[in-house]
Write a protein that binds this DNA or RNA. Structure first.
Lengths: 235, 235
DNA sequence: TCTTGTGAATAGATTCACAGCT
DNA sequence: AGCTGTGAATCTATTCACAAGA
């Protein structure tokens, strides 16, 4: 029952689409800054570096916010995507681990900008505890559970060494956190219902290395690789 | 012609598979450290947090490196994956932009560990140029082209402010670079044949916020959302 | 006339389930 | 008896191509 609405708003937006919404949002913000009032799917797709049919299908999952023959109203679309992503409220984020990376994250401007607010910083190292960063004192990891509850933290960023990441995850999950952004190079074990996203420098470098190697192989031109190249060029 | 070999080794490994190989490699290294000699697809899959059929299919793209009834030899598989990813050679990496993030990246241990070597650091800020980091002097961005060529850099990490990223990308591409890891929050415009991977904190946070919002919506229990929850629990 | 929104077609990834080998 | 490797089935995502609407 209650099966009306734009068909998509009601039930899940595809993951692949959700992953691209931030990209569109950024492109739209760029256009807005340059004073553009209206944009076609084609132009927005170019700005975001995707195919325009994909962009239109993605946006169609949020609703029907364009005007045929005209395009999309930039401000209106910014608002709709922001709302869909939950950026119209602001989320209290805690960063655990104030090493080089943690500091970089805390200082990262775009972080605080829209929708997110660094509400706590934690470290286990007592020589770092007490230091101030972006106006926040670094607190001792012992305070983790208390602070998460009292400051209504909803997203935790783990920027600890690898060995500390799982215990930290266990503790924040026990404190009710269900959204974790993990920078430590380990696979976190978490119960169902907890979302973990992982950012991993070495993984990204390895993927680049793979492709770089392929390119090098092609240039050195073994017969098999030459054939691959020919096939690749057909595309 | 020459259409033999394990059917997969010759022609492209799926992107989704390539993206997971680093994950398997890490899980395998963990097992190796604990002295495990042999592992089944099931156990390795658990360690890597994926489905075992997927793991087997992924590995089958590299070749037939398991033993039926037994599993995979840990050391041998580490070697095969490393070779496939191109980690048996080492890649000279340059980091452009030595702010908080650039420093964190330069100091990141796992970076240097296997396959990668920080071979140059660049910044436009003359007050940073000359400073030493991980044994390397920070060089002025003017040296970019020369250094890329003379030190045989093959991967460039862009950790500059957003506005500097595209010009830097243009310059490194003009110097022959075809692999870029971009931390700046912009879509880089690059010609065909250049691989760009993007790591983006705010994108990741926005994706988490989306899911977090969904969870919150469910708990507040509108009829439609309650229905969604019921459906989700069927799975 | 121009551009959206979307069915239909295609491509790609995941999962199932079991034959085949050790 | 146990586990890999893989066809077949399924699910998800992308792209095409055009009807419908401004």
């Amino acid at each position: 029952m209650i099966r009306r609405m734009s068909q998509a708003r009601e039930r899940g937006i595809p993951d692949a689409t959700v992953a691209r919404l931030p990209l569109y949002l950024r492109a739209l913000n760029g256009l807005a800054e340059r004073g553009t009032a209206t944009v076609s799917s084609e132009d927005l797709a170019v700005a975001a570096g995707v195919n325009s049919a994909k962009l239109r299908k993605d946006l169609s999952h949020l609703g029907s916010y364009g005007t045929r023959g005209v395009g999309y109203d930039v401000q209106y679309l910014i608002y709709q995507i922001s709302r869909e992503l939950g950026l119209t409220q602001d989320w209290a984020v805690a960063i655990v681990g104030v090493g080089n990376l943690g500091r970089a994250l805390a200082n990262y401007g775009g972080f605080v900008s829209r929708g997110f607010r660094v509400a706590a910083l934690f470290d286990a190292d007592t020589s770092v505890v007490g230091e101030r960063l972006v106006g926040m004192p670094v607190e001792h990891i012992d305070e983790l559970e208390d602070v998460i509850r009292t400051r209504d933290i909803s997203i935790v960023v783990i920027a600890t060494p690898a060995a500390a990441a799982q215990p930290v995850a266990d503790r924040v999950i026990a404190s009710g956190i269900t959204s974790i952004l993990n920078f430590a190079p380990v696979v976190l074990n978490v119960p169902d219902g907890v979302d973990v996203r992982k950012v991993d420098l070495s993984t990204e470098l390895q993927i680049l290395a793979f492709h770089e190697q392929r390119k090098a192989d092609r240039e050195s031109g073994s017969p098999i690789m030459a054939e691959n190249l020919a096939e690749a060029m057909d595309a």
